[in-house]
Amino acid sequence: MKLDLILRVTTKIILPFMLLFALYVQFHGDYGPGGGFQAGVIAAGMIILYALVFGLRAAQRVVPMSLVQRLIPLGVLIYAGVGIVAMMKGGEFLNYSVLAQNSVKGQHEGILLIELGVLVTVASTMVGIFYAFVERGR
């Protein structure tokens, strides 16, 4: 499939900035608008844009379906894992206060970790759903 040259070149230029923006939204979510849900969707949007312009095969060379299928449960496991670690350290499930020396630091670390879990599950689910629809059409 031959697409517009401008579209291809612009996509190539814009992709790294999309990834950068997703990471910014993820790690700046504590101080400004953003967080795991938004960052996950933006990161998935990057892969989807790549697949729309360069084709599904090119996108699956970067992010193969097998990887996506492993990442979907991994995010949930990271989230639950934070809860389990909190339990093993003597707190309740998902009580982040016990994760670090003092409770404020523990809370902050816990929020960062569970946002990571959210990012992984949301991004991989969106990419996985998109792959499933596109593969069905071939």
């Binding site: 996950g40 969707v41 499933a132 629809f133």
Partner: peptide, 13 residues
């Protein structure tokens, strides 16, 4: 919102 899009995708499937 995010759960909404996931369930709409399930409906579309």
């Amino acid at each position: 919102i995010v759960v909404g899009v996931a369930t709409i995708a399930l409906g579309l499937a």
